[in-house]
Every structure is written in C-alpha cells, then in structure tokens.
C-alpha cells in the first residue's frame, strides 16, 4: 500500500504539473473572482472564506479522473486487482496520494491567497486548518466518484456532476468555520464536523469504492 502511494507520488512529480497545476488553477480562481465581483475590501473579506473553499474544491476536482483513469487505461489497474493488495487498499493509497499532491498544497496556499481577498491573518490560520481537515474528505469523495465513472469515456463532466453534490456538506461546514472565525465568533463546531466528515469518509468509502472498482473491472 505504501509502495503504491509512493509510486503515485513519484508519477505525479515526474509527469510534471502534479503539484503545480491545481495550485495555479486555485490562484486563477482567486484572481478572477474579485475581477468579476468588486474591488471593495470589505465585500471581499465577506466572501473570502467561501471563495477560497470553493476554489480549493474546484482545483481538487480537476485531477480526479487521473486518480484511476491512467491506471485503468494502461492495464495496471487490472494487474493491481489480481495482486495481493485488496482494492480497498488501492483506493486508500491513491486517495492519499491525491491528497498529498493536491489537497495539502491547496491548504498551505489558501492563507497566502487569502491576503488577496483581504482575509485577516487569524481567519487565514483557520482557513488553512479547515482545509487541512477537509481536503482529505474532498480527495476521498472524489476518488470514490472516480471509481464510479471509470468505464465511461470522457467521464470528466459526469464525474463533476456526481462529486459536486457530495461535496456540499464539507463545503458548508468548512466555509462556515472560516466565516465564523473572520467575524470573531466560535468556530469549533463546524471544524469538528469537517473532521467528522473526513473520518467518516475514511471509514465508509473504501468499501464502496472497492466494490465499484471490482464492478468496473469484471
């Protein structure tokens, strides 16, 4: 499992854009939104938590179909399925690799990009923290969606359609935590909920994804 995780990280680094693309996309979203909205500092501060969470969520979505898609095309997913490694473990390793190459950089970049949106330093810290807790859920849910659309040609749009509604609870609690923090209100409850969704996803989704992979490979 660790070997598969390491291989996916190595592939992401070598194929270029593994780490970079999602970050640049995140930056572009954060730049475009004030252009479309307003340059008013107080208005930006008000929408900053939502914009940053939404940007991270969309950036996460970009690379989802590559999680299993490349391995499915070149036949290595078949070979992994016949190996001693259970498909549930394959799913966890791949979701973890996706998180490390996408979720983690996004979480670390978010407070920096928050400066562009007039997000206070304290709220920025909560932003980073909420994304650290929430991006594992985004990767896990997204990887689950990717197992469902594995056999569909040009399934990228379908994947977004399936995954985005599943992202709703994570988005609501995550953005709410940062919003409360920016207003100086307590933010512990939504943060705990974000953590709970991530933990729940680790507990349930491997089984659903393993089943979906088996269905797709047969």
């Amino acid at each position: 499992m660790i070997q598969l995780f390491a291989r996916d990280i190595r592939l992401a680094v070598r194929s270029g854009g593994g780490f970079g693309l999602a970050l640049i996309f995140f930056l572009i979203v954060v730049v475009l939104i004030p252009l479309g909205l307003s340059s008013d500092q107080s208005a930006l501060a008000l929408v900053a938590p939502g914009v940053l969470w939404l940007g991270a969520l969309l950036a996460c979505l970009l690379s989802l179909d590559r999680i299993f898609g490349l391995d499915y095309e070149d036949g290595s997913l078949d070979l992994l399925a016949t190996s001693p490694l259970p498909l549930e473990a394959v799913y966890i390793a791949k979701a973890a690799a996706h998180w490390l190459t996408t979720g983690l950089p996004l979480a670390l970049a978010a407070p920096v990009l928050g400066v562009l949106l007039n997000l206070s330093f304290d709220a920025g810290k909560v932003m980073c923290f909420s994304l650290l807790l929430g991006t594992p859920a985004l990767s896990l849910i997204g990887a689950f969606g990717a197992t469902l659309t594995l056999g569909v040609k040009r399934g990228g749009l379908l994947l977004s359609l399936l995954v985005l509604p599943l992202y709703v609870p994570t988005l609501i609690f995550g953005a709410r935590a940062v919003h409360s923090a920016s207003l100086g209100q307590p933010f512990d409850v939504p943060l705990i909920m974000v953590l709970a969704i991530s933990l729940g996803a680790v507990a349930i989704l491997p089984f659903a994804s393993g089943a979906a992979l088996r269905i797709n490979l047969r």
Binding site: L11, D74, S76, D78, T82, P84
Partner: peptide
C-alpha cells in the same frame, strides 16, 4: 492458489518510471 500472476494484453507499465 491465493495469489496468481496475471499478464494481460496491456503490460501495465508506467512510462515515467
């Protein structure tokens, strides 16, 4: 036996490795 080595039409290689 519990594990079987399987080789299909596709080699399952990673070009970058």
């Amino acid at each position: 036996p519990e594990t079987v080595a399987y080789a299909a039409h596709a080699n399952g290689l990673k070009g970058q490795l």
